[in-house]
Design a protein around this nucleic acid. Structure first.
Lengths: 242, 242
DNA sequence: ACTTTTACTGAGGCTAACTCATCAATCTTG
DNA sequence: CAAGATTGATGAGTTAGCCTCAGTAAAAGT
């Protein structure tokens, strides 16, 4: 066992398993994307992955669970890509727009998987772990949002989840429209979203009790100036009063 | 044939057919809603509708087409309900909010059918007539939007479709969140949507040349203060420099 | 009353998901 | 290193459920 040559087969064995599982997932991904859930045949997936049909059932209980794992992998990959696409040090609003652009293009590319996702969700209990990758992806938005609040870019008095729903909802519908019409006007969608976010996130109380956000910043500026004035006054007074 | 009594069976015959078709649709609706598409069994639908399994295939080519027709009926009903729920003479923004509230509650009630809809859409060519009821429903928004533009409530320089995507997208995601969490905060969703619509639809150029509203006033205030400071500086300098 | 047309039926065909007895390969142990 | 044990892989067979179609009943036509 200490002999390196004898270790090789051990690691190879593990790698073999993982490679096989990965091959099945990749084959299933392609088959589902091309044929849809009902159209996809387990036999075809097995053929694509170069395994026997029965082998698939050693890794996944049934066709539905296979789809579920493919979908989970899709969202994990999406999360990786999104994190890579977001500029680290930029203002939060720019990070949001980068996320939006990434999300939109990816969703248009793999639009079927949005449908698969809701198909999977439909028959899952609320707290199923298989939905975690989706939750992790959604939290990418939340993280940026919170950072925006911390940096003072966004006012803190709107619930994050409403903006999250608006963000992903708008993008998904825009993607659907683009896919259905086979057109691509990403830029105009992005411009509109940015407009809405800037107008609403930066000045979120405009509707309820207007004039509180940027004005808040400006208010702080004013306060600082007032302090400066007072200091100036202090500096003067000794000379003038004496 | 001219005898009225001989006409009766003819109409009864037609009514019978329509009643049967309607019974099948209703049975299918319930079965799909309870069991999902895959879980629903044609035999069960036939039993619910009190017809033989083969009879269903006289009306619908296959299970998928049956779902398609159920979905179409669902959207038609939604359109009727929406038109009824919208106050005729109110401002467009209020009509939009009425539509939003109606849409949200209905979608939460029958959330499965949203999933079915995308399932149906996935395997349909772009120009399939069976999607018409959905298009008709979507146009309810468009009509209100245009009316708002005509009345001068909304500025005309944003594309309708972006606001439509935002409107339905936000609501669908909000509905999903509510269904998944089994919570109901319709009012807070509505408040947020109204805020966004009012901020964006009424003052649509905010994003292009930012910071022109209240900050302008504050800016003037700051400018005035700066002038004061300069005056103060002037007042001091003679005394300190001399 | 007899034919034709139309509406309906449900047993059976067929496809495709899933199982399981069997085999192959690797690991363990005397 | 050979023999047994364990684990992984296979694909023919089972089964569920969609859909067909030959046959029946009812209505319309003549």
């Amino acid at each position: 066992m200490a002999d390196p040559s004898s270790e090789k087969p051990t690691t190879t064995q593990r790698e073999k398993l993982e490679a096989k599982e990965s091959a099945i997932l990749a084959a299933a991904h392609r088959e589902f994307a091309e044929m849809g859930f009902d159209g996809a045949k387990m036999a075809a997936i097995a053929r694509r992955a170069s395994v026997a049909e029965g082998t698939i059932y050693l890794y996944y209980r049934n066709k539905a669970e296979l789809l579920e794992r493919v979908v989970a992998r899709f969202w994990s990959a999406l999360t990786e890509g999104a994190l890579a696409a977001i500029p680290e040090q930029s203002p939060a609003i720019e990070q949001l727009m980068a996320l939006a652009r990434y999300h939109l293009t990816e969703v248009v590319n793999d639009f079927d998987f949005i449908g698969f996702t809701s198909q999977v969700r439909q028959k899952k209990p609320r707290d199923d772990r298989s939905l975690d990758p989706i939750r992790r992806y959604v939290r990418v938005f939340d993280a940026i949002y919170r950072r925006g609040v911390d940096r003072g870019e966004f006012s803190a008095n709107t619930e994050c989840r409403h903006w999250r729903d608006l963000f992903y909802g708008q993008l998904e519908y825009a993607a659907r429209t683009m896919v259905l019409r086979n057109s691509n006007d990403t830029d105009s969608v992005m411009a509109h979203l940015e407009h809405v976010l800037r107008a609403g996130l930066a000045q979120p109380r405009l509707a309820d009790s207007p004039q509180q956000t940027h004005e808040e910043d400006l208010g702080q500026l004013l306060a600082a100036m007032k302090r400066d004035l007072e200091r100036l006054e202090q500096a003067i007074q000794p000379k003038t009063s004496t």
